[in-house]
Design a protein around this nucleic acid. Sequence first.
DNA 1: GAATAACTTGAATTAAATTCATATTAGAGT
DNA 2: ACTCTAATATGAATTTAATTCAAGTTATTC
Lengths: 303, 303
Amino acid sequence: MLELRHLRSLAAIADTGKLVQAAGRVHLTQSALSHQMRALEAHYGTTLFQRTGAGLRFTPAGQRLLQLARETLGAVAGAERDLARLQGDTRGDLRIALECHTCFDWLMPVMDEFRVRWPEVEVDLLAGFHSDPLDLLKSGKAELVIGSQKPRGRDYVALPLFRFEILVVMPLEHRLRTKRRVAAADLKGETLITYPVPEDRIDLVSQVLKPAGIRLERRTSELTVAILQLVASRRGIAALPNWGVRNYVDLDYVIARRIGAKGLWSDLHAVVPRTLAGRPYMTEFVEIIRAKCAAGLTGIELL
Amino acid sequence: MLELRHLRSLAAIADTGKLVQAAGRVHLTQSALSHQMRALEAHYGTTLFQRTGAGLRFTPAGQRLLQLARETLGAVAGAERDLARLQGDTRGDLRIALECHTCFDWLMPVMDEFRVRWPEVEVDLLAGFHSDPLDLLKSGKAELVIGSQKPRGRDYVALPLFRFEILVVMPLEHRLRTKRRVAAADLKGETLITYPVPEDRIDLVSQVLKPAGIRLERRTSELTVAILQLVASRRGIAALPNWGVRNYVDLDYVIARRIGAKGLWSDLHAVVPRTLAGRPYMTEFVEIIRAKCAAGLTGIELL
DNA sequence: GAATAACTTGAATTAAATTCATATTAGAGT
DNA sequence: ACTCTAATATGAATTTAATTCAAGTTATTC
């Protein structure tokens, strides 16, 4: 008999396309999912997927069940929000600080969705640059910080978001254009264009260049588009998240290359005070980030 | 974690108001339901019911979950209909014959609902009186017979609907008005007003009067209202299902009394050819009858 | 104040889902 | 064609969870 568990699995399979990854999302093994889906197929006497070497593709019957899953899981989440409201006061403030400038790119739609679901929560984005965003939590000026830093104390918890790859962005005719991957030594003599943040907050510097003993000229700009314009007009190179440059690469505006053999990756977390971490709207805000980013950004990996 | 099982139980509890009866509907014991609901309450940290001596009353939180249950179970049923359609031809005929005249009272809304859900199935009600409705199945003139008779052979199956009580209906000032229950002997000398069917098809006669060796005058009429008019104007008494007379009793048009100590009860079934019994639209038609009757008729008991 | 008709509870049982370890399959690259 | 890789499938063992069983409570009715 159909259970929500099946629908949750179905949705995870649709999101990831693969049993192994879907299994991770629903905290099961790949084998469990295989058994589960097989049992579903037996129950309805239909095939729900076309098994290809590269994962599962939904059949029409599978799609119909997936549609049910989407509707149903949405309705369940809505009801659970209402239960939380019935239990007590769910109002609160959610002031957000960003450690990474590029996160603006995806934050707005996340906030929009959140405001629909939790109209009683005051969401705000703290503007401007902050030397140490985690301090904002301690001083009570923010309730949530998005970034790669993890908190030291026991008073704050880091809720995992996703891992993304940082690519070197270069002008079209750059001398390194023929390389598929770029090593630290290759970059000697370049000018690095970054957001106006301390050097040690730039992963390319702290994790690649500094260990290799290389120092580059720097130039800063506040906006991603401005950085890309500078790169395109040969004023230097930049290091930006995969998702932030993908569009410009596709438009042949700049080129982007992997850094080192495995690439330079960074983990993003949402850091919140432990006292607020259990609030339903907090966990849901994080859930919305994960869902929207997994759906909308290319080349990321949910943590 | 919430599962459809919980929602199915919740809906059953709402329909019946009692754990024992709800348990029957979802094929569990009452204890299982108690554990299940207790676990749900623990999971959400809320109370879902107010336990009274006479059953369970939903709290606001319980009502919200019940609303979710109604939406969700409807959506699931819809999806399962579509799966059946995707699997093959779901068209078919559903010609219905009635053994009991009073069933007209509830059949129309059932058919309406069915037509919405299964537009591709041709539903029809066979008009007129049939001496042996089960013969219509054998001769291929009907696909479903509603009545108390059970089929003899292995070629037909009886799907249980509900049990209802048959009451004696009498004019307001009748000599038996002071009795709470009426015995066979009390009825001696009365005129019995019935639908125009053979005597052995009238439960009061075959199960109460004949065993007691009592024969009454008979007078017949096609319509329930006409029978009630005759009764009200003192032309005789009648034996009709609880649900069919309830309104007229409430309006002080006639009075109705229980027959014997435990009452006279009759079981209603839907008899269908075995070959068609598995068709999704068949099981759903029966399901609609049970649901609508359980919700709309008083004094019945689902089988 | 017993009898009834509910629900609750904890332990025992049963059933079902999940994992583990391994097999199988399909496709890509050489 | 062959081997490597990245998938899913399978069957038995295990674990987990749900359900029943057998009393135990509680409220209400007559």
